[in-house]
Design a protein around this nucleic acid. Sequence first.
DNA 1: TAGAACTGTGTATAACATAAACCAATTGCT
DNA 2: AGCAATTGGTTTATGTTATACACAGTTCTA
Lengths: 255, 255
Amino acid sequence: MDQGNTGDGDLFGEEARSVELLWGERAGPSRGPKPGLTLAAITAAAIEIADTEGPAALSMQRVAKTFGFTTMALYRYVPGKRELVALMVDTAIGPPPDLAAVPGGWRPRLAEWAMRFWAALVRHPWATRSTAGHRALGPNELGWMDAGLRALEGTGLTGAERLDTLALVTSYVRGMAQQTVTVAGGPAGTDEHAMAKMIAGLVHRYGDRHPAVTAALAEAAAVPEAQETGLRYGLDRILDGLARLIDSRRHPERS
Amino acid sequence: MDQGNTGDGDLFGEEARSVELLWGERAGPSRGPKPGLTLAAITAAAIEIADTEGPAALSMQRVAKTFGFTTMALYRYVPGKRELVALMVDTAIGPPPDLAAVPGGWRPRLAEWAMRFWAALVRHPWATRSTAGHRALGPNELGWMDAGLRALEGTGLTGAERLDTLALVTSYVRGMAQQTVTVAGGPAGTDEHAMAKMIAGLVHRYGDRHPAVTAALAEAAAVPEAQETGLRYGLDRILDGLARLIDSRRHPERS
DNA sequence: TAGAACTGTGTATAACATAAACCAATTGCT
DNA sequence: AGCAATTGGTTTATGTTATACACAGTTCTA
């Protein structure tokens, strides 16, 4: 464990390098031969690979080969694979949306935020996979956080509530994106179908043990729903629940 | 791609073996030497390793070593690591809860389900990590699904709505568990703190670019909240939103 | 112009999953 | 009882992975 100095707003060791890269804080070197690569180019190539061939196909060798360089050449730009993935995630998510133009207050604003976040996630399925757990936060991701919290300004919610609200929406959208998303390495879109087929197969065999699943599936099978319908359904429930809280803050007498 | 026969309720290839293992469908062999290991023992050992040393430390060699066996010995019991992980996940989640005794209708029942699911997930942080994406469903996991759907019986929701509702709650709880969870390999409990510290550090440096994050954090910093408060907050919003929908189904005249 | 800093390469290592061949133990069948 | 089929565990081997280290060539600066 390399802790190093843990100053006030300081980051320690491994993470510090990640943050430096993510936030573009490396001093531009002047001496030495011209670099044949760019951080942006490397990141873009890595994203391209992960998008088309799946996250399992992403290796340092694979990325280096697309440039005709040796594997080790990449280590002149990136400290390690972890950091590269962090870069990939933040780049893939992209800059946060500007929701100032969305009319109608917090509700359509937060909804728009959620739908755009979802779109960004399903565009790069591996991002949700790699996002799990503790890792350095990139500027884009922090920007998304800020945009989401901005949608909640003026709602009367406390700071903690606003943060928890964003965690609620984020967790939900991320989770849905994970489930919607493709198989590792396979073409997009297949997964939902395969998953449904597998569940159907299991229910067909062991359905008697799981009556509630069987019943719900049977009833739902009659009316197939569109791709985003499920996401919208949950989002509306969340927004309704939020509306209730926000209204109760504005009209405390109604309880 | 080994598709094989894709019958009606049939599963194909690689997945079929996973399902067989998960659902305990292997014919007990009679001839040959006595097995020195058990699927259950192997799974338990693997879980122990993942729990204490993190998912990164889980390797076939590491598992085999705990029994004093060769790595390859494991392959007599498990087709591969993927299948072992699937077993681990289903075992770690454990049998579904019986919520019949919970009084008060769907709302406390679903809440209880969510809290227990959350508890099961945070007990084994790696489970949420491995659960991502397409994989074989185990009996315990399907049991949890059934228990959750059962809580929604009699609510007047359609089959599709009940499924979407469960997806909503599951996605949220899973997402929260992921964020709450420990660093890979590190001791549990550190993560939340480290994450908060990192965000604080970033805001300290780049806060001016992210006023909403800064404001929310500053406001929230005054009143530190308990571990499960965040989870409960979002859950209550979801339940409120659901209640609105369910009520509107019962009293259609009120809009 | 000499040296320092930097880039890309070649080589090496350790960990990993897993395949194939092999021996020994056990049991069912004859 | 004995043989053959079956299975468990080991040995050995292969291909892939990330990444450390030393070196050669390049370019800027003092």
